Lab assay of single mutants.
Amino acid sequence: KKVIATKVLGTVKWFNVRNGYGFINRNDTKEDVFVHQTAIKKNNPRKYLRSVGDGETVEFDVVEGEKGAEAANVTGPGGVPVQGSKYAADR
């Protein structure tokens, strides 16, 4: 997939743990970017499923997906693991 931007910061608008996807609002352009659970590179080690939490600040790359921009290599700011959704089960 073609990389559009790297190391972008954004805020998770919403993320559905059961369906495994959601949207991140970019801090720079204010665009909403699709995020799939497979794009989460550093999950919270205490969580079973990969997820990001609503309102969480994340860092990610933006790539060209089939339906427009989507997030890739999602981590917390500075490459730390994401916090994850409060609806995702703990280990």
Rank of each mutant, 00 (worst) to 15 (best):
K1V: 05
K1S: 05
K1M: 06
K1I: 10
K2S: 06
K2C: 05
K2A: 05
K2P: 05
V3I: 15
V3F: 15
V3G: 05
I4D: 05
I4M: 08
I4C: 07
A5K: 15
A5S: 15
A5T: 15
A5I: 15
K7L: 05
V8H: 02
V8A: 05
L9Q: 13
L9H: 12
L9R: 11
G10C: 00
G10M: 00
G10K: 01
T11I: 13
T11C: 11
T11K: 12
V12W: 04
V12M: 03
V12T: 04
K13L: 07
K13N: 09
K13E: 06
W14H: 04
W14F: 11
W14N: 03
W14R: 02
W14S: 04
W14Y: 04
F15C: 01
F15D: 02
F15V: 00
N16I: 01
N16E: 02
N16Y: 02
V17P: 09
V17F: 09
V17K: 07
V17H: 09
R18C: 09
R18G: 07
R18H: 11
R18E: 04
N19I: 12
N19S: 15
N19M: 15
N19R: 15
N19C: 15
N19V: 14
G20K: 14
G20C: 07
Y21D: 02
Y21C: 03
Y21A: 02
G22H: 01
G22W: 00
G22D: 02
G22M: 01
F23Y: 06
F23P: 00
F23L: 03
F23Q: 02
F23K: 03
I24T: 00
I24Q: 00
N25G: 06
N25E: 14
N25V: 14
R26D: 02
R26C: 07
R26V: 07
N27E: 14
N27P: 05
N27T: 14
N27F: 13
N27G: 11
N27W: 11
D28H: 02
D28I: 02
D28L: 02
D28F: 01
T29N: 15
T29W: 02
T29S: 11
T29R: 04
K30L: 14
K30C: 12
K30E: 12
K30R: 14
K30V: 05
K30Y: 12
E31M: 09
E31I: 08
D32L: 03
D32P: 05
D32I: 04
D32Y: 03
V33Q: 01
V33P: 01
V33K: 01
V33T: 05
V33A: 02
F34V: 03
F34K: 02
F34R: 02
V35I: 15
V35H: 01
V35R: 00
V35S: 01
H36G: 04
H36N: 04
Q37Y: 12
Q37T: 10
Q37P: 02
T38K: 08
T38H: 13
A39I: 01
I40A: 01
I40K: 01
I40D: 00
I40Q: 01
I40F: 06
K41C: 15
K41L: 14
K41Y: 14
K42S: 13
N43F: 12
N43Y: 12
N43P: 11
N44R: 07
P45N: 15
P45V: 11
R46L: 13
R46E: 12
R46T: 13
K47E: 05
K47F: 07
Y48N: 13
Y48A: 09
Y48E: 13
Y48F: 12
L49T: 10
L49C: 08
L49F: 06
L49R: 07
L49K: 06
R50Y: 07
R50D: 06
R50C: 10
V52E: 02
V52F: 07
G53W: 06
G53M: 13
D54N: 14
D54G: 15
D54V: 11
G55S: 09
G55V: 02
G55D: 12
G55F: 07
E56Y: 03
E56P: 02
E56I: 04
T57P: 12
T57K: 11
V58Y: 01
V58K: 00
V58Q: 00
V58D: 00
V58W: 02
V58S: 00
E59M: 12
E59S: 08
E59V: 11
E59A: 08
F60A: 01
F60V: 01
F60N: 01
F60Y: 03
F60P: 01
F60D: 01
D61G: 02
D61Q: 06
D61S: 09
D61P: 00
V62W: 00
V62K: 00
V62N: 01
V63H: 11
V63D: 02
V63C: 12
E64D: 14
G65Q: 06
G65Y: 06
E66K: 15
E66H: 14
E66Y: 13
K67G: 10
G68N: 06
G68Y: 05
G68Q: 04
A69I: 14
A69Y: 13
A69C: 13
A69E: 15
A69V: 15
E70W: 14
E70M: 11
E70R: 10
E70Y: 14
E70N: 09
E70K: 14
A71T: 03
A72Q: 15
A72Y: 15
A72G: 09
A72I: 14
N73E: 12
V74N: 01
V74D: 01
V74M: 02
T75G: 07
T75F: 04
G76D: 04
G76P: 04
G76Q: 06
G76H: 05
G76L: 07
P77T: 07
P77I: 11
G78I: 05
G78T: 10
G78D: 10
G78Q: 13
G78S: 13
G78H: 14
G79I: 04
G79V: 04
V80Q: 12
V80I: 14
P81R: 08
P81S: 14
P81E: 14
P81F: 13
P81I: 07
P81D: 12
V82K: 04
V82S: 04
V82M: 04
V82E: 04
V82W: 04
V82L: 08
V82D: 04
V82T: 09
Q83G: 12
Q83S: 10
Q83E: 10
Q83W: 08
Q83H: 10
G84P: 05
G84T: 04
S85K: 08
S85A: 08
K86Q: 13
K86Y: 09
Y87F: 13
A88Y: 06
A89D: 12
R91S: 15
R91P: 07
R91G: 09
R91Y: 09
R91E: 09
R91Q: 14
R91N: 09
